[in-house]
Design a protein around this nucleic acid. Structure first.
Lengths: 199, 199, 199, 199
DNA sequence: ACTGGCGGGACGTCCCGTTGAT
DNA sequence: ATCAACGGGACGTCCCGCCAGT
């Protein structure tokens, strides 16, 4: 096996990460044994640990990458967009997100590392988005933006966890409607997002 | 060695369960090693395994008991009550609830056993509670009761998971207000719950 | 397997230690795999690690015990005695002593622990023994007692290592004679140790 | 890829051997992982294994080379010279010598190979040196030359091991004096080695 | 000549549940 | 009913040597 090009390296890492994602999703962190990682990725221990220092590292990288992705979705498409994204996710994978959360709470080193990594700006961007929506009258302004953000977070995590646990997924449009009713401002923006006409 | 009285038996089981709760809460399922269970309960392996067949059994029983308790709270005090109950729970323990959910999704035997156990009536009771509230005009009736129930579930799980992960707990009253706005019917019941007078 | 009496416990630990001694002696620290420890002791991993926290712990305890024993021999019977003890030791085991030394030099934590353990008094007792012999004219007093002690140490370690490496063991009496010639004082004590008459 | 000249080949091998020496000295045989060899030598696995069949081979060659060197010192400069050489050696490296000894004792194949390699003549040269010194009256002749040689060996190994274990190095001149007293013949050669005047 | 990705065995440790004895 | 000694499987990690490719 010769020296891999930079692109090939990334592809290799990607392949392992994807396999790990499936394993973590299906079996949880502890259940995702290295033997399973080998089987799922088609690579040997030697190969896997050549690219990642440990199972935990694999887990962490995966969380980083998916978190970034989701935050990006939020900033780009707002609450509606992220809800729709969540219901299209592999539900099994969402369970890993939950597992990751436990790790965050339990393992101080883990949390520290995560804190260090998370760019504060992402959260700020999310917050500013809410403030703008309030100023534009799309969101009610009798509630502090931080509180609104937390409420959104609750609903998002609720959806995540319900899907992760394999319950009937709640109807997306309904959730959006109800949350819309709860948070709408004076001059709500059109709720018609996918059709051409406004109401 | 003398036989224990029936009451003593229950007390013993209770003691073990409580210890297990703390262990699961603090360390997660896999992290709750039998050694830790021994230390926390003050009993030895032999004693623990005398009362429960396995660690998994312990976990299951604990989940059953807590689930029953929460459903009871819901039926007795409704959405408001259960939200308030959740924010008073030990957040660490809530993580176990989440862990339990993963198990449910992942392990078919586990799920089967759970399904068999759950009395359908509990859920029905919850549903009927919603229908009554709709009939009384307290909850909007332009949404099917099942859907409303699911929405409630999403918010509840959202709160659970956020607390479990150690995030800032969202303000209880705010959540109740927003969800109230989202689901209120024509003749909302008084929102003032702790004061003496009705509106 | 019921609760063991204190004596039985010690016996069990002893049995494991003896097996470990043989393993370390024959294969060195790294070569003494747990599998070999199992085979040699006739006990399982579970049993071994029930009594000792780790392989390293086993190693440490073994070193402590043998070191104490040897120092005791020295204090009781002096240089002659310890030389004779060394040539009666299992040469294979002496290699472990050497291995232990490397660990001492290499691993700071290990050294710290060893330092903490070693009672300074033992060394002092050895030193005082030399001073007394000098005062009695048995050992030359034109050399500082510490230096004499170091010279003895060199010869002892030399014997140890030669035997450990499997070379022809040097003749004990000759070594004693030469070292005697090197260190004798004005009024040497009788060299006749094993027979009744002096020369 | 161009072929290396004979001189370059040797240089390459030398570079690897030197790196290996440092690794073995610092970490012991097992601790000297190939990864460390790579880092220390600046070459890759492939390069290293191109020149040496295995880690063990590397170790063996190193031992051969250092043994030859030390024997040479002995033959050239005698006991005094080798003692002085030893106290100038890197003590870490001496530990490898000890490690090598264990290997000799433990691994039959290893020993066989070593036996086959060692030119008997070297030892004979050392022995003849002693005989000559006895004949010249420099060394006592009431002890067989083999025995004297063994005694020298004991002291040398003792010094080696003490330095290897990081103990206070015994004073060189003192050791020489004491061993001199133990082994001197009727007409000892001048002990003045560093000063200009004879006694 | 040299690189480095990789296979796969072995290692120390952990941990659950069983068992024989009180 | 309780205890703790124990078996033995499985885990994450390490690490040597091989070999396809440059």
């Amino acid at each position: 096996v010769p020296r891999l090009s930079e692109a090939d390296k990334d592809a290799r890492r990607e392949r392992i990460l994807e396999a790990a994602r499936r394993c973590f999703a299906e079996h949880g962190y502890e259940g995702a044994t290295v033997a399973r990682l080998e089987r799922e990725s088609g690579l040997s221990r030697g190969a896997i640990f050549n690219w990642f220092d440990s199972k935990e590292e694999l887990f962490f990288q995966l969380a980083v990458r998916d978190n970034d992705r989701l935050i990006g979705v939020y900033v780009d498409t707002g609450f509606d967009g992220i809800v729709r994204a969540l219901v299209e996710e592999d539900p099994a994978w969402l369970a890993v997100y939950v597992e990751f959360g436990r790790r965050l709470r339990t393992d101080p080193q883990f949390r520290e590392r995560w804190k260090k990594r998370t760019p504060k700006e992402r959260e700020d961007a999310a917050l500013r988005r809410i403030e703008e929506a309030q100023a534009a009258g799309e969101l009610r302004d009798d509630v502090a933006p931080e509180e609104l953000g937390r409420f959104f977070g609750v609903v998002l995590d609720g959806i995540t966890v319900q899907r992760a646990l394999g319950f009937d997924p709640p109807d997306t449009d309904l959730v959006l409607r109800l949350v819309g009713d709860a948070t709408r401002g004076r001059r709500p923006r059109s709720r018609r997002r996918h059709g051409p006409a406004a109401s």
